[in-house]
């Protein structure tokens, strides 16, 4: 049996992009696969849950789990992998802060089920059939996982050791994390394995940002053709770069799109969305309520904009009534 450190990858409520990002390591993937023994990776390799259950506790050196926790099955797997792993890493925005799936916390489970199985334009379901956790078919008891009332980030379900942020994380961060893991040079528990400064520090357009921004209008990316050299905020786009943790090398801005906040906040911020709101509203012009409202009308969906990747970690955790 191999003596290389055992590593696991797992996905919960996610899109698969995080899995892709592992492959994005390119040649480095060989370095990683050479250095470790991947014992669990349902997306790429055939391992069964029972194999994991059979392993002694803490026998996996590290598990990188991506995806938010939405169903009882995901919750169960999170507990299982926690128990079997020495280090559990929340990998990617969904595991880190709830990600896009946690935007569902604006709706009740019942609203979501009704929309998906009845009202969605692509749905034909005259019987209004909904999936049932328990059912019988041909004398067999069938069970499917239940959907939880709310979407959770990984650390809202189990204890998490580290976080690798991003939607998806960049190969650079993954590589650095794996190297740190292999060398045993890990920072204190709970650390987000990315720099603790905002994106602006890495943004090549930083110098082009004027020092006296006062916006009278916010625009959405599809509404303008942005100057590829100038600060996007200065062009009226609600860029989250100033309020979002760096480490991505401002990759979206290099693609002429504003930062949407996938790396989450820096360690000093308790509520990412509220902080983005504070900073963006501070750059708005106007002294009369009407004037201010008109300026801020360019941000039609504050929750979806400011908590795009982290409604689960909003201090309110979602819509509260």
């Amino acid at each position: 049996m191999s003596t290389k450190p055992k590593i696991g990858f797992y996905w919960c409520a996610s899109c698969g992009g995080c899995e892709e990002s592992v492959v994005d390591l390119a040649e480095d993937v060989l370095m990683v696969t050479g250095a470790v023994d991947i014992i669990f990776w349902p997306c790429a390799m055939d391992f069964k849950k029972a194999d994991i259950e059979a392993m002694p506790d803490k026998s996996i050196v590290a598990t990188l789990l991506n995806g938010a926790i939405r169903s009882s099955e995901q919750e169960e797997m999170a507990h299982l992998l926690r128990r079997k792993s020495q280090v559990l890493i929340a990998y990617g925005s969904c595991a880190h802060t709830g990600g896009i799936p946690s935007l569902a916390n604006q709706f009740t489970r019942e609203q979501i089920m009704k929309f998906v199985y009845e009202d969605a334009p692509t749905m034909v379901n005259d019987q209004k059939t909904h999936p049932q956790p328990h059912s019988r078919d041909n004398g067999h008891e069938l069970e499917i996982p239940v959907l939880r009332n709310v979407v959770r980030a990984l650390d809202q379900v189990v204890d998490v050791d580290y976080y690798i942020p991003g939607c998806p994380p960049t190969p650079k961060l993954l590589k650095e994390a794996v190297l740190a893991l292999l060398s045993g040079k890990l920072p204190p528990k709970g650390t987000v394995l990315a720099p603790d400064h905002a994106v602006c520090q890495e943004c090549l357009r930083n110098d082009s940002k004027p020092q006296d921004i006062s916006l009278t209008e916010f625009k959405r990316p599809h509404e303008i053709i942005a100057d590829p050299e100038k600060c996007l905020l200065a062009q009226g786009l609600a860029c989250m770069g100033p309020a979002t943790r760096g480490g991505c090398d401002a990759v979206c801005i290099k693609g002429n799109m504003p930062c949407t906040g996938c790396f989450g906040p820096v360690s000093r911020v308790h509520d990412h969305g509220a902080k983005i709101l504070s900073y963006l509203a501070s750059t708005a012009a106007g002294k009369e309520e009407d004037e201010i409202s008109a300026t801020l009308a360019g941000i039609p969906d504050p929750v979806g904009t400011f908590y795009r990747y982290g409604l689960a970690k909003c201090l309110l955790r979602g819509k509260v009534s």
Binding site: Q106, G273, A274, L277, S278, L280, A281, S282, A284, G286, K287, E289, I292, S293, L296, I299, D301, P302, V303, F306, C314, L316, G318, K319, V320, S321
Partner: peptide, 20 residues
């Protein structure tokens, strides 16, 4: 005025989050 700007947006967001 800076408070007013933040509060204008915050109130809208709180409404979306179900806070009366």
């Amino acid at each position: 005025y800076k408070t007013l700007r933040r509060m204008t947006l915050l109130k809208r967001m709180l409404a979306d989050l179900g806070i009366e």
